[in-house]
Design a binder for these strands. Structure first.
Lengths: 249, 249
DNA sequence: CGGGATCTTGAGCAGGTTCAAATGCTGTGG
DNA sequence: CCACAGCATTTGAACCTGCTCAAGATCCCG
């Protein structure tokens, strides 16, 4: 057994307890509003959107299966999971969403949600009503293009997850998972090696298609091998290269 | 052991050896061209598309990873599989596509393909160049809407597959797989209970995240239980209700 | 400070994989 | 038209990864 590690010290809060007022720069909506050629965002759209904020408490639903699709959501700060259900109640988590990411776009062209989204902690979201989005997309080709782009990206992400679920073993799965968060935090200018996972081991296991206990065991083994340290949901990655090697693309 | 069953007699060829000339009605492109309110298809678009036909022989690639995205494809007759790859060469089949279905739309907004598509038998496809699609989508809101709809549907299908890969056991997987084909053939007016699977056991196993041998064993067991009969790639479903029960949504 | 939730660890089990080999199609060339 | 090569499918048997069940440790929140 390894000796107990000291609890990781104060951490740059990647989720942030307080939402900064209107810096929408790091919000997924910004990308949606941006001109294709890297120009400025459409400010009217940004304004409309930023006004429409809502606060959700841990465990609350953004939307549920069967509900009519009324809006898409951008996470200003906090996090959420989305998932689908079998008709006998089993759940498959299909994605986690952190500060700055969009969700609900997959259902865009459906009348009713086929998946659900639930907030993992106290979370501030911008809600963009479908009418608003449609109006702007009608008017602005760049918004249309961004929407396609985002849907396309969601399909690519899903393909990666299918590859993971169908072909990877437990070690590869967890390594892939950790590196994905590392990259996403880095993209938003948070630390790529020291972060807070807001979801439970059980949610991680569900997402990765393995039992909660297996997630724990792999975490422990990774820790013994010097790949990372954990303290509850706090993770510090120590050897990104070796993790990449393990994850096998 | 069960006694050997007589080979399933002549079967309504669901793939069809000969492509009928220009009945584009049952082609995925038709849906793309159709007005939202159930009106008529845009005939200019249909014409443009139908002219652009290509024949592929078993095993040939429609597109490969890394290649620039130039077109989307509609299968006029035949079938294809699409799949993604790990960087160490493992493959995950992400979908099968039969007569009348579209493929390549997931990559729409990417510069380069992140997946590959390979034809499973001699297959006739209509190739729709991106410029054409873009031009029409620019002009016709209904085409835009249909494109979103199709992408959306792909995301929903992928979610179903993730649920299957993450949470279902071997029996549930194969039952789900068979029912999916049953429905898709029915939608195209082929028999929902007697059809030809154009892919190998190995491809099925890959798609469902299980070994080729396990696919065989489950087929055998289903046959012993009177759920279906098989003769090579010919399948006859005998008890749809029980299959549905097994598949567990 | 107490109780419920979450996380961790252990032990035994099982579904599905792997390896190996037999059987049976299919289509190709003589 | 037949034989043969090569591939796909099927079946058997041993094995192994990850699961289940159970219990203890730790944390967090009121």
């Amino acid at each position: 057994m390894m000796p107990k590690r000291p609890v990781v010290a104060r951490v740059a809060e990647n989720a942030g307890e307080v939402c900064s007022p209107i810096t929408c720069r790091d919000c997924g909506i910004y990308g949606l509003c941006r001109e294709v050629n890297g120009g400025e965002a459409d400010l009217r759209l940004l304004e409309t959107i930023v006004r429409n904020r809502k606060l959700f408490k841990r465990g609350e639903l953004l939307y549920r299966v069967g509900e009519p699709v009324r809006a898409i959501y951008a996470i200003r700060c906090g996090s959420a999971k989305s998932y689908v259900l079998t008709n006998d109640g089993r759940m498959q988590v299909t994605g986690f969403h952190v500060t700055g990411e969009l969700l609900g776009l997959g259902a865009l062209a459906s009348d009713h949600y086929t998946s659900e989204a639930r907030v993992l902690e106290t979370t501030m979201v911008c809600e963009v009503p479908l009418e608003v989005l449609e109006a702007y997309s009608e008017e602005l080709p760049s918004v249309r293009y961004q929407m396609l782009k985002i849907l396309s990206q969601e399909i690519i992400d899903n393909q990666d997850l299918m590859l993971l679920l169908g072909k990877k073993n437990a070690d590869e799965r967890l390594a892939t998972f950790l590196l994905s968060f590392s990259q996403r935090f880095q993209k938003r200018s948070y630390s790529p090696t020291l972060f807070n996972l807001s979801m439970s081991r059980s949610d991680i296991g569900n997402y990765l298609g393995m039992a909660e206990e297996t997630v724990c065991r792999v975490f422990t083994r990774f820790q013994e091998d010097g790949l990372l340290t954990t303290a509850r949901r706090q993770v510090q990655l120590l050897d990104l290269d070796r993790l990449r090697l393990i994850s096998r693309g």
